[in-house]
Nucleic acid binder design. Sequence first.
DNA 1: TCGTACCGCTAACTATTGCAAGCATTCACG
DNA 2: CGTGAATGCTTGCAATAGTTAGCGGTACGA
Lengths: 122, 122
Amino acid sequence: MASTKPDPYVKLGEFIKRQRELGQLSIRQLAEMCGVSNPYLSQIERGLRIPSSMILQSLAKGLRLSAETLYAQAGIMDPQESEESDVVKSIMRDPDISARQREMLIDMYRSFRKVNEAEAAS
Amino acid sequence: MASTKPDPYVKLGEFIKRQRELGQLSIRQLAEMCGVSNPYLSQIERGLRIPSSMILQSLAKGLRLSAETLYAQAGIMDPQESEESDVVKSIMRDPDISARQREMLIDMYRSFRKVNEAEAAS
DNA sequence: TCGTACCGCTAACTATTGCAAGCATTCACG
DNA sequence: CGTGAATGCTTGCAATAGTTAGCGGTACGA
């Protein structure tokens, strides 16, 4: 048996790690937020362990992501075409908030993106 | 340990079983289609075992369901989550902003909704 | 009445998840 | 220097996911 390591899960781990670092959290912090042990989270991030559906759900909750997104990252689910501008599009489509409020949300979203980009470059 | 059996998973098993019977498939048939052993599928259906995310995905494929549906059945996915607005869902799907930023956007969006609702009532 | 083929399930085993404890390193401060 | 606190990682170990082998039961044709 060469690799019992279904490579998609390595990508999942890397994705989780990126998300954690984006939020400036240590492994222990995120682990506690998600209710998993810190060594285990470390192993997940490096693709050494494959989290169960329950754990994955906890991680999604902790990262404020939909579980769907995590599965998509793991290549488990169909890609689902998660475009970045989906956020903007769906904000613009929402009839239950005002134009002004839409504008504020969109501005905020865009500034987040911009800030993150700048930080990534440094 | 008393509750080694998070009973949402019992419901998941029953759901799978109903789906299988609806398709007039035997346990062995579905098991082979999904690439799992037949005793194991039997155990899943009775809630004695909790399938990993990989297996669950295979089952979804075999039953021609979206994995999301299975997760919803298992109560793994926040029921709330599936009723969220498109805005919240797409924010939660966005991998390019941090958890904290997602939280801020979602909070803001919700408070907009709340304010609007209050104003509409007056 | 055999023999075969299917059904679902049990038993016993292996493989993997997920944890508690603890190591090595780094940085801050007295 | 020390000492304390934070970082990520390694190491066993318990629990449980998932397997192969096989049992008892039912249906059907020879």
